[in-house]
Design a binder for these strands. Structure first.
Lengths: 139, 139
DNA sequence: CTGCATGCAAACCGTTTGCATCCCC
DNA sequence: GGGGATGCAAACGGTTTGCATGCAG
């Protein structure tokens, strides 16, 4: 059920957005991606980037990460996986942990909802921020 | 470590915000809470509500839930627990599942981050929306 | 009297949308 | 030629902030 919507025309804009997203492992936000893409396509509009990211996420071509923090982030790596966000600088990294499929089963039994999916988000301090904090009295 | 920040003066506004939040199990957003509080405190400002919610969350008096969806939500029930969000209507409910403490341990070992915490968010369709969808062709 | 807390309004920021134009089929 | 896709700019919704006033210690 819920097939990844019809099909999508691969316009230049979409292709380049996809390529730029695939280049990085940093889970960029829409406007970060906009900046990246603009280097190759100076006249692209921010709206186009938003529209296409949304579209490609709906089609399962990319992953939309809605975690804590204010902005949505995107990921070209679509296999299910978890994330960790640095509560200091906001950076988001992949978490190298097995996905807890049984969790969905237990969830299904203990909730009247029809469960579609789940996501685990860890919060922590990234190595960079740890290093910085050693020298500073307090955050 | 990370003691819940100094101390907070319990002004009328703060007390009423807290009371109203405790009354419901619906994880209201800031502006929902604003509406609730305004019935008792008609002259309260939206800014005050935001400021105090943020403050009380920092102090561990309430829980700030930043999940998918656009708005932050708040919870007077501060024991660690998971949530499920209806992808149809956006409602957020508590998940009645044991908290996976070992997950943090595995996470700590497989990541260079200093792990602070984690949260699991399920997505699904709530009973109400299921009922509605039976009668409607498609969403 | 002093400083934190408040109400109010304006600013902000990320995102969405309307519209005219463009380009691909 | 027609329909979707784009660029552009304006609108939007949620949140934050500056500032003058108010109130509690």
């Amino acid at each position: 059920m819920n097939a990844p919507t019809p099909m999508i025309r691969l316009t230049t804009q979409r292709q380049i957005i996809l390529e730029e997203l695939a280049k990085v492992k940093s889970h960029p936000t829409a406007s970060e991606l906009y900046d990246m893409v603009r280097k190759r396509l100076p006249r692209i509009g921010l709206g186009t980037v938003y529209r296409n990211l949304e579209l490609m996420a709906d089609n399962g071509m990319i992953l939309k990460i809605e975690v804590g923090g204010t902005q949505k982030r995107f990921d070209a790596f679509t296999d299910p996986h978890y994330h960790i966000r640095c509560s200091c600088c906001g950076k988001v990294d992949d978490m190298n942990l097995p996905v807890l499929d049984d969790l969905v089963n237990s969830a299904d039994q203990s909730s009247p909802y029809h469960i579609i999916g789940h996501h685990v988000e860890f919060t922590g301090i990234c190595p960079d921020c740890q290093k910085n904090q050693e020298n500073i009295t307090t955050h």
